[in-house]
Design a protein around this nucleic acid. Structure first.
Length: 214
DNA sequence: GCGACAG
DNA sequence: ATCTTGTCGC
């Protein structure tokens, strides 16, 4: 079956994943997201200054959808259009926030990890809901978190980005560690649940998707 | 067989 | 992901 080939590809690229502390101080942070309209996928990338969080540049691209959404294989559906948009950027972000899981995935290869490995750039997965791992609900205060675990091993964190609001499922994508995940997600989140780079990428992706009529 | 299941 | 009005709570 075709899914078996995708699974083998995840396992093959898996050996390149590195979970380690970010080396450099970040000045450019990006957010990427994908929107849909009929059979078209719209990928958006927005680069912001850090820690000011001012928008510096944004690009987008559209492509025909190739695969349906299959839990565990989201990256094969969304990575192509994200790469297309990414290539149009002039600036090179030093860290990318991705709408989806990092290593908090059945084969430790979620969308953020897949993108990070292909670009060989630091990435953090920020999912709005749970996919993999066990956890306890964190306290209600912004900044509170609990580790996401699989067989006792840490694979991410459930992080409260706003007081009393549903937490985010954050996990290392590539070249970052758990502490980086907490630091950068919290420091790029202002008055909403979603970190600013992702909010902006989502705005652009849905705006392009809605304005598209075959 | 049953429940879970990023976007 | 996307479709959508009202509504609950600070």
């Amino acid at each position: 079956m075709r899914i078996d080939r995708l699974k083998r590809e995840q396992l093959r690229l898996n050996s390149r994943v590195r979970i380690e502390k970010l080396k450099n101080r970040i000045k450019y942070i990006a957010g990427v997201d994908v929107g849909r309209n009929q059979t078209m996928l719209f990928g958006a990338v927005v680069v912001l200054s850090f820690p000011e969080l001012q928008i510096l540049e944004s690009t987008w691209a559209k492509v025909q959808e190739r695969l349906p959404y299959i839990p565990g294989y989201l990256s094969f559906r969304e990575v192509p259009v994200i790469l297309r948009a990414y290539k149009k950027l002039k600036r090179r972000p030093e860290l990318i926030l991705v709408d989806g899981q990092g290593i908090a995935h059945p084969r430790r290869f979620g969308l953020a990890t897949h993108l990070g490995v292909l670009l060989d750039l630091p990435t953090i997965g920020c999912a709005k809901s749970h996919l993999w791992g066990d956890y306890q609900m964190p306290a209600l205060r912004r900044g509170s978190f609990e580790f996401l675990r699989f067989n006792g091993e840490r694979i991410g964190l459930v992080l409260r980005t706003r007081d009393g609001v549903k937490p985010l499922f954050v996990s290392p994508g590539h070249r970052v560690d758990f502490e980086d995940c907490r630091d950068y997600v919290l420091n790029s989140t202002t008055r909403y649940r979603i970190p600013e780079p992702l909010r902006q990428a989502h705005r652009l992706a849905t705006e392009r998707a809605r304005g598209w009529d075959v």
